[in-house]
Amino acid sequence: MDEFLWRALLGGVGLAVVAGPLGSFIVWRRMAFFGDALAHSALLGVALAFLLDVNLNLGVVVVCLALAALLAWLQSRGGLAGDTLLGVFAPSALSLGLVAIAFMERLRVDLISYLFGDILAVSPVDLAWIYGGGAVVLAALAVMWRPLLAMTVHEELARVEGVPVERFRLAFIALLAIVIAAAMKIVGVLLITSLLIIPAATARRFARSPEAMAMLAAAFGAVAVAAGLYASLVLDTPSGPTVVVAAAFAFAVSVVLPRRAS
């Protein structure tokens, strides 16, 4: 197997292992649309990073965090429903990123690879981002696990029991921003949330505890990445979408599978 294939597999599986637990929380906290809006803003981060000549991943993380802060501020002012606000935000951020990139004529930016991912072009530096960022995210998630789960189940009850809810909410968004930056190369900004949500939704049926669901989601994601990567080579199809199709296929099977009597 060629070296670039190994890097693609390593990068994809590493990302899936992080996306499983984080995606489970996104499903439990009903933040799928929020994750989508955040991911769509990643392209704006890419444009700004090019403009300011800083690291791309750093640009994406910073722009995602700024957008999350802006969203939180707009939501606290009230007046607009949360989903409407996100519906305004997601396409606006994406379009702003596309327009900004169009302005930079001298730059040759492969837009398709940012939108839909280019897993075969994963570099050793990308791998370092995925595994370094992934380790940080998993460690932070492990530390925050119980209070984060408590506030997901009932926020006010958790607050009365002493959980600093606001701090954990911000920390969770920061973790999401890191994963979005790392995932951009693998599946692209348009498909990142699919890697977070589809494996978690697939795992639900087979899990009896939150931890089991998180680990199963990681496993399903890793299998989808491997299967999708292989299929894209054999069928000569774009790798990012093929990975998502593989994940969606596993989800469909899990839905159709007869329920075991418990």
């Binding site: 189940v153 009932h154 009850l157 639900r204 939150p210």
Partner: peptide, 18 residues
């Protein structure tokens, strides 16, 4: 307490969160 169907949680795990 309206717990989402998507969150697998037993009663003792729910209590352990406290």
């Amino acid at each position: 307490l309206a717990l989402d169907e998507l969150l697998p949680l037993t009663v003792s795990r729910f209590l352990a969160l406290g």
